[in-house]
Design a protein around this nucleic acid. Structure first.
Lengths: 105, 105
DNA sequence: GCTGTTGTTCGACGTTAGTCGAACAACGGT
DNA sequence: ACCGTTGTTCGACTAACGTCGAACAACAGC
């Protein structure tokens, strides 16, 4: 099974931004930003596993994450270094923001 | 006519990112980033004026722009200082990227 | 070989977003 | 007063997105 993981510079900025412009995905990214690898099942943000799988796919195809297959599990990690190199400040800017949307919206 | 211009910190990050995650709006922001004010009509990016008006509204309501009414015209400018203060590196990261999407997509 | 676990894929559904033309509103000139 | 200019608003349409349950695939353990 070929994990489709594009080069970050091949991905349109708008796709990167769109990938980050979702609450569930942002929570995933926040978790990943703590460092290390996480199995997909780790992310329990009140969505079904189908939805979770979908979001992880969006992140992966936007060049934000790297996935390692091991047995029946898949371990995901943030491509932080590449991200910081190509878009310095982007991740930090997004991550240093209140976890929940400021206004309840 | 009340221009609805929210405080930047009242706007969810996801809304800011979503506002930037569109080609037309990104082109507008790129233009605005050159500094100064621009009348709405300045932005000719191959969309109708209805669509242009829509995009400017999205940018304004995401807290990205400030609009000054003068006669029949409206002058738009980037809220760069506030943006840089709340999301340091965000704008730079987004703007220092090739104008057109890397892959033709 | 079953069975359970872990994820992905496949419709399907409702919602939102981008787009347009047409109608409207506000202002400036003459 | 009448135009023309400049923008906004109003449906309407289509495409894309987030969501889910159900079916499927791959592996691990017994």
């Amino acid at each position: 099974m070929e994990l489709h993981e594009p080069e970050l510079r091949e991905v349109p900025v708008t796709a990167v931004l769109a990938a980050l412009a979702d609450d569930v995905r942002l929570q995933i990214v926040r978790t990943l930003a703590e460092g290390g690898e996480y199995a997909c099942g780790t992310f329990e943000f009140g969505v079904s596993k189908a939805t979770r799988s979908h979001h992880l796919k969006v992140l992966r195809e936007a060049g934000l994450t790297r996935t390692r297959v091991a047995g029946t599990s898949r371990y995901v990690r943030l491509r932080r270094d590449e991200l910081d190199r190509l878009y310095p400040g982007l991740l930090d800017a997004v991550l240093t923001t209140p976890a929940t949307a400021p206004t309840g919206r």
